[in-house]
Design a protein around this nucleic acid. Structure first.
Lengths: 165, 165
DNA sequence: GAAATATATCTTGATTTCAAGATACTTGAT
DNA sequence: ATCAAGTATCTTGAAATCAAGATATATTTC
């Protein structure tokens, strides 16, 4: 079945036959799929009164394991937002009672962000819902294809995830 | 090579062994890679004094072919933003002289957005730069792997691109 | 051909994000 | 010990996005 990127690539080949637009076959699909997923997530989380950004922070803490705490810096590498954004997110989650800030005992510059019991419950509920939705989207592919796809994507993400940047 | 999603999945399997988190192997990689690509694009476009959102609108018009015009509604399906966002984008691009609004001769509710000659040049310059950068990112994969990856992604994007939603 | 429904775009107000730089503490070199 | 450089987080102000609803025009139904 054709998708929007097929049409986009065909259009470029007509308009700019001098350029090799093959990279778009992969990377435009990644960007567009991510936007579709964002919309779907927003919808799925609204049942739990959670925004996607809240889910991202809460689940990062949740999967760290008890006592469910990380530094803001660790949260940055998990969520790929800027430090100003993370400060703001922690402020808002604190007001909602889903996380709390504690001083880092080993570094007085530092802070630890800890999930409250309610924050933990909310994260657990929303995760189950998200997985159900994602499973439906991935039903397009066989188990083997999902494995292949994951492996190919890993080759593209690994360089980003393993450099200072 | 391991990536952040490998660590994330391992953490969930430790914390929530009762859940099947296999969907994250694919879809978390898609979301994270898209964020990395956004950052890289922002950097690449800054050489041309263009924001990613400007690029998205200008190139949608550019590849429509002469006379380089589309309705706001058509731009919505290409860029996956809301109508309020698109109105705002067209306003700002108009102020910068990169696009102009024309009345749609066949529908008095409608408007056509047309690329100016400068807008067209800016789109062409930035596209060449983007393709070079994307080629570097994709050098991780062989030509055959890139083809496979594109085909697998198409299966996931097609359902989104071919329904009313 | 009038009313009801649908479509296309824009407006509004609140929310979220980012880039840049400020502040406070820590570490390393001498 | 002191000073310079590095690190961790927060502050600020501007820019961009979204959801919801308003407005104007088209289309369908009866």
């Amino acid at each position: 079945m054709e998708d929007e990127v097929d049409r986009l690539v065909a259009a470029w080949r007509r308009e700019r036959p001098d350029l090799d637009v093959e990279p778009l076959e992969v990377l435009s699909r990644v960007s567009r799929l991510a936007r579709h997923l964002d919309r779907a997530r927003r919808l799925a989380f609204s049942e739990h009164q959670l925004e996607p950004w809240e889910f991202d922070v809460l689940t990062s803490l949740r999967r760290a394991g008890a006592p469910y705490q990380l530094s803001p810096g660790q949260l940055l590498t998990q969520t790929l937002v800027t430090s100003g954004t993370m400060t703001n997110r922690i402020d808002r989650l604190t007001k909602k009672g889903l996380v709390e800030r504690l001083p880092d005992p080993s570094d007085r510059r530092g802070v630890l962000v800890r999930l409250t019991p309610e924050g933990r419950d909310r994260a657990d509920e929303a995760l189950a819902g998200l997985l159900a939705q994602e499973r439906a989207i991935l039903a397009q592919l066989s188990r083997g294809q999902r494995g292949e796809l994951a492996a190919l994507l890993r080759q593209l993400t690994a360089p980003f995830d393993n450099v200072p940047g």
